[in-house]
Amino acid sequence: MMAYMNPGPHYSVNALALSGPSVDLMHQAVPYPSAPRKQRRERTTFTRSQLEELEALFAKTQYPDVYAREEVALKINLPESRVQVWFKNRRAKCRQQRQQQKQQQQPPGGQAKARPAKRKAGTSPRPSTDVCPDPLGISDSYSPPLPGPSGSPTTAVATVSIWSPASESPLPEAQRAGLVASGPSLTSAPYAMTYAPASAFCSSPSAYGSPSSYFSGLDPYLSPMVPQLGGPALSPLSGPSVGPSLAQSPTSLSGQSYGAYSPVDSLEFKDPTGTWKFTYNPMDPLDYKDQSAWKFQIL
């Protein structure tokens, strides 16, 4: 009977010793046993002879290597770790002494450095960015050149030099007046198309007034536009458009034309069986010896 009264063996659950049927240790109110408190290391007290050895090595170098620390530790009968900690504390003490010396050398008012006064946003004049500046400075420094007289040679050079070769001289006033084509001369031969040399188009003023001019072949195509416009036809070669000034309004060009419109200028042929003959000019830059190549039959 006494065997049943004795408590059973101890069981360990999660490293906790349980005594038989008792489960009081598993209750929430019972805390787990805490780790033992780490003991504080005792402070090391250095003797005068030990301090002399350490100070002598510190005077040589503030960062001794492990071999120098072990050698000193053997002399003063201390572990190497204590020597390492002593050098660490000695360097910190040396830095603190240097900072105190710097503070003593500075004057009393030198510690508080005078800061520059901050400028207020409204006091300083700042350039306004509302208006974009002129990058080319046209509004201040540029002045347009004065327009020359209508009959000045410089204007003629600016007008005619675009179309004339570089080897030719500017046309005088008398020749510029001949550039304007007359109405009857352009409409006299509506079906004849003559190819003149390129030099005649640039230099010869008579080429624009003769039936064999460069633009005589364009007349049949330009004249039928007159009834559609409801007024006189516009002429690209009329009046002052080739003269001194090219800047004319469309209203000033509306009254200039080749001449009176005639039914002869239409595109319809009077004789459907007729042929169109292209007159060959020996001055043509295209060297075609066979003139029969310039004739064709309209079917």
Rank of each mutant, 00 (worst) to 15 (best):
A3Y: 14
Y4Q: 00
M5F: 11
M5S: 00
M5Y: 09
N6H: 11
P7M: 11
G8F: 13
P9N: 00
P9L: 11
H10Q: 04
Y11P: 01
S12G: 04
V13C: 01
V13T: 02
V13S: 05
N14M: 13
N14K: 15
A17N: 01
S22W: 15
S22N: 04
L25K: 05
L25I: 06
M26H: 04
H27N: 04
H27A: 05
Q28H: 13
A29E: 01
V30F: 09
Y32G: 07
P33K: 05
S34C: 06
A35Q: 06
A35W: 06
A35G: 03
P36W: 14
P36D: 08
R37V: 10
Q39I: 10
R43I: 14
T44Y: 14
T44S: 15
T44P: 14
T45A: 04
T45M: 10
F46W: 14
F46N: 13
F46L: 13
F46Q: 14
F46H: 12
F46C: 14
R48M: 06
R48C: 06
S49H: 08
Q50Y: 12
L51A: 14
E53M: 10
E53T: 12
E53C: 06
L54K: 13
A56Y: 04
F58L: 12
K60G: 10
K60S: 08
K60R: 01
P64W: 14
D65N: 11
D65V: 15
V66G: 07
V66C: 05
A68M: 10
E71T: 08
V72Q: 14
A73N: 13
A73G: 09
A73L: 14
L74E: 06
L74V: 10
K75V: 12
K75A: 10
I76S: 15
I76M: 10
L78D: 12
P79M: 10
S81Q: 01
R82F: 15
R82Y: 15
V83R: 10
Q84D: 15
V85P: 15
W86C: 13
W86K: 14
W86Y: 12
F87V: 13
F87R: 15
F87Q: 12
N89L: 14
N89V: 15
R90H: 10
A92K: 14
C94A: 09
C94S: 12
Q96W: 04
Q97P: 11
R98N: 05
R98G: 03
Q99W: 08
Q99A: 04
Q100M: 06
Q100T: 05
Q101R: 10
K102T: 04
Q103W: 03
Q103N: 08
Q105P: 03
Q106H: 06
P107A: 05
P107T: 06
P108K: 13
G109F: 04
G109Y: 03
G110W: 03
A117M: 06
A117C: 03
R119M: 04
K120M: 01
G122M: 08
S124M: 07
P125H: 09
R126T: 00
R126W: 02
S128G: 07
C132W: 06
P133V: 06
P133N: 04
D134E: 08
D134K: 10
L136K: 13
G137D: 09
S139M: 05
D140C: 05
D140W: 10
Y142D: 10
P144D: 01
P144M: 04
P144G: 05
L146E: 03
P147V: 07
G148Y: 09
P149M: 07
S152M: 05
S152G: 08
P153E: 03
T154Y: 13
A156Y: 15
V157D: 02
A158G: 01
A158R: 07
A158I: 11
T159W: 15
V160Q: 00
V160N: 01
V160M: 00
W163M: 00
S164Q: 01
P165I: 14
A166T: 02
A166Y: 09
S167T: 09
E168W: 15
S169A: 04
L171I: 06
L171G: 10
L171N: 09
P172D: 07
A174C: 07
R176W: 12
R176T: 03
R176F: 13
R176K: 08
A177W: 12
A181E: 09
A181Q: 08
A181I: 12
S182V: 12
G183C: 07
G183M: 10
G183R: 08
S185M: 15
L186S: 05
L186Y: 03
T187W: 13
T187V: 13
T187L: 10
S188W: 09
S188K: 07
S188I: 13
P190A: 09
Y191T: 01
A192H: 08
M193P: 00
M193W: 09
T194G: 01
A196P: 03
A196F: 15
A196Y: 14
P197Q: 03
P197G: 04
A198Q: 01
A200P: 05
A200L: 13
F201K: 03
C202T: 01
C202N: 04
C202P: 02
C202S: 03
S203F: 15
P205T: 07
P205D: 01
P205S: 06
P205W: 15
A207V: 04
A207C: 14
G209L: 14
S210P: 09
S210L: 12
P211I: 12
Y214I: 05
F215A: 01
F215C: 01
S216V: 15
S216H: 07
S216P: 05
G217D: 01
G217Y: 12
D219K: 14
D219G: 15
L222Q: 00
S223K: 07
P224D: 02
P224F: 14
P224T: 11
M225D: 01
M225V: 05
V226R: 09
V226H: 08
Q228D: 03
Q228A: 10
L229D: 02
L229S: 04
G230H: 12
A233K: 07
S235V: 15
S235D: 01
P236C: 14
P236M: 13
L237K: 03
L237D: 01
S238G: 05
G239E: 02
G239T: 06
P240E: 02
S241V: 09
S241T: 08
V242R: 10
P244Y: 09
S245V: 12
S245R: 14
S245E: 04
L246G: 07
L246N: 01
A247F: 15
A247M: 09
Q248T: 09
Q248A: 09
Q248F: 15
S249W: 13
P250V: 10
T251Q: 06
S254R: 08
Q256E: 04
Q256P: 08
S257H: 04
Y258E: 01
G259E: 05
P263H: 10
V264H: 06
S266V: 13
L267Q: 00
L267H: 03
L267F: 11
E268V: 11
F269C: 00
F269A: 01
K270P: 01
P272H: 11
T273V: 07
G274N: 01
T275K: 08
T275E: 00
W276D: 00
W276F: 02
K277S: 01
K277N: 00
F278L: 11
Y280M: 07
P282T: 03
D284T: 12
D284E: 03
D284M: 13
D284F: 13
L286N: 03
L286I: 05
D287Q: 12
D287L: 13
Y288P: 05
D290A: 15
Q291C: 13
S292A: 06
A293K: 11
A293L: 09
A293Q: 02
A293C: 13
W294K: 00
W294N: 00
K295T: 15
F296W: 03
Q297M: 14
Q297R: 09
L299F: 06
